[in-house]
């Protein structure tokens, strides 16, 4: 089996800035030799796992446990602070809330922009455009600026684009939970098509039934570390026990 995604001892450290640094203030500070208020924070530490091509893996964890950071690292929007990450295949990233849309542009223009960012050429987008619009179910709002869209509408459009770029690895961050039931079903059907085609899925969800329905394996992150990794049913059950007030194993 080939590896689609591999994390080896990955850590991600953020510098938490309570105030946005201003050049004028920083210069003054260095002149006055005052220490700056920088706080470091490890969002992920010692995270190792590998996902084989064709596998579907869910990432579970409470808010702030590092799930979105993990997906951002896979999508390479941010570099790891330590460790190595291997990604094999074309990515279809749908990171939390929105898919790389520009708020001023219309839905239609954003399809072009987003698809081009994901590596498509004009001819390819031209060919897929009708299908993307239809799939999204946005209707006449496709000509309205994205900033007027609801979160669910943005998720619909984002998923529609990502579904059409034919990725090898699909990354979804709480996307299925913001759309309505009807769209979630449509997404699930699409995802099953992906799985049949041997594609890799990595998604963050808070919905256990969805995880169990779509994934063989799950990774439970807690405080930036891997708490459990294994068959979806087992990890979900452990996570559920923890949420219900149980102690960490």
């Amino acid at each position: 089996m080939t590896i689609a995604i591999r994390f080896e001892d990955v850590g991600k450290r953020f510098v938490v800035q309570h105030q946005r640094p201003f050049l004028a203030r920083e210069l003054l500070r260095s002149v006055l030799q005052r220490p700056s208020h920088r706080q470091e924070f490890w969002a992920l530490r010692n995270v190792s796992f590998s996902i084989e091509a064709g596998e579907s893996v869910a990432i579970l964890g409470t808010n702030g446990s590092g799930k979105s950071t993990t997906l951002a690292l896979i999508a390479q929007t941010t570099p790891p602070t330590e460790g190595t990450i291997t990604v094999n295949g074309r990515l279809g990233p749908l990171l939390e809330l929105g898919a790389g849309f520009h708020p001023d542009l219309s839905g239609y223009e954003n399809i072009y922009l987003n698809a081009s960012l994901l590596g498509l050429t004009r001819r390819q987008v031209d060919a897929l455009l009708g299908s993307i619009v239809e799939y999204s179910g946005i209707g006449d709002f496709i000509d309205a600026p994205i900033q007027t869209y609801s979160t669910g509408m943005k998720a619909r459009l984002g998923f529609a684009v990502v579904a059409h770029i034919d990725p090898d690895i699909l990354l979804l961050d709480e996307v299925l939970s913001v759309g309505d039931g009807q769209f979630a079903q449509k997404c699930e059907a699409t995802i099953r098509g992906f799985q049949k085609a041997g594609k890799t899925l990595c998604f963050v969800s808070h919905n256990p039934s969805q995880v169990l329905a779509l994934c063989q394996r799950a990774i439970w992150l807690h405080g930036g570390r891997v708490q459990a990794i294994g068959p979806a049913a087992e990890v979900c059950a452990g996570y559920q026990r923890f949420l219900d007030g149980g102690a960490l194993a």
Partner: peptide, 11 residues
Amino acid sequence: GNASLVTKVRF
């Protein structure tokens, strides 16, 4: 001004 793109896609 393009924060919404930079944080979502690698390019």
